[in-house]
Design a protein around this nucleic acid. Structure first.
Lengths: 207, 207
DNA sequence: GACAAATGTGAACACTGTCAACAAATTGTG
DNA sequence: CACAATTTGTTGACAGTGTTCACATTTGTC
């Protein structure tokens, strides 16, 4: 790593999270080891303790960053939607895009995906901006917004809206986990896309 | 730990897995540390290497044991079904019991549940008897059998049967993960049972 | 310019997984 | 039965980890 001239680093907090994120990207949560993070940042191990209480706190920050990338993946997927369609069609497409972006991120960045949900995240974390994407919304909020859109478009009844994010999230999250390092790892690309499509259909139909 | 009189232990392999399983029960996969496992078994750390290639192999064995307990939880749930009902009703109940047993185990034994899916399990593992319950079936096989039952009872079409285990498993597994250490951890018991019931309804309806 | 706060360094500790060499018990073979 | 071969457990060591305590350097403030 590049030797720095100044005694102070300048932006160590951010640099540590960035280095940790790269490690997580390559090897998942277990790969983000404190000493290696500081090594890559060109700083002593203990310097990290000026910015994070302990390793868990650092990992938590990395997890937030990973969730933010997940949010951006969902936003990318949503940006391809043709807005000129019928309201109901657009609303449904927005929900499907949440699931598709989620699944794509899990398979494209499995290390980051596992890190995003490795350290016990809380629902309160879903509201903090560290885990938000370009739109300022976290993955959970993007899902909620999509479901609200279904209600507004008259596709989903208010009654069925209640707790719907749990159902949708569970299904997609479960498939993602099973595909990237669960018992469904052996599936080839074709089987995966098939499973993903059928799953999103099931959610839309069974909600 | 109890000092042993003989130089040989007698059944060290099994004892190590048992000790590891207890650690996993208490603290999840990260709690099963090789040295502590051997300590509890009253044996030197290196003795473990006569029975397992490395720590990962030990953890894998513990994971299999955890899956076997999961299978038993499902079997317990299925044993409460009233067999005198209509074939279709019984078949549906058997599928619901798979989900209910799965979710109950996840909440009753979160440490073991996380361990069961921590080390990259493979579909081949789902067929090995180490991870089977009393019936000799693994969790995956119990699910498959329940879905087959739906087809036999004429409740599910052969076409929709294709890949159905992925959908059902994903949904239930996802909810379990999100509830025990995901963003849905904050939910109280009432909310959980509500979410579980709605989820199982969704699967049954959307399959 | 003195002094306090913030930020990075150095040396050390307990703990982990793992290896190589050795020792004791068991098993198999003449 | 003897005794070599194999299996199973032990001892001692090493590198790597998270973390703590004392110390050094920089920055900001009255």
């Amino acid at each position: 790593m590049a030797q720095r001239s100044t005694y102070r680093h300048g932006d160590l907090h951010r640099a540590l999270v960035a280095a940790g994120t790269e490690l997580a990207r390559e090897g998942g949560p277990s790969a983000v080891v404190l000493r290696e993070v500081t090594r890559r940042t060109g700083v002593t191990p203990n310097a990290a303790y000026r910015h994070f209480a302990d390793k868990r706190a650092l990992l938590h920050a990395v997890s937030m960053a990973a969730q933010a990338e997940l949010a951006r993946s969902i936003e990318d997927e949503q940006s391809t939607i043709n807005q000129n369609d019928d309201d109901g069609v657009v609303a449904k497409a927005r929900l499907r895009a949440v699931g598709a972006g989620y699944l794509r991120f899990a398979q494209t960045q499995p290390g980051l995906f596992r890190t995003a949900f490795a350290e016990h995240a809380d629902l309160r974390d879903a509201a903090v901006s560290d885990s938000a994407g370009e739109s300022g919304l976290t993955p959970f909020q993007l899902l909620s917004a999509a479901l609200d859109g279904l209600v507004e478009a008259g596709v989903l009844s208010a009654e069925r809206r209640l707790g719907a994010e749990f159902l949708a999230w569970s299904s997609v999250h479960g498939l993602a986990m099973l595909v990237i390092d669960g018992p469904l790892r052996g599936l080839d690309v074709e089987q995966r896309t098939f499973a993903a499509r059928r799953l999103l259909e099931m959610v839309e139909k069974g909600l």
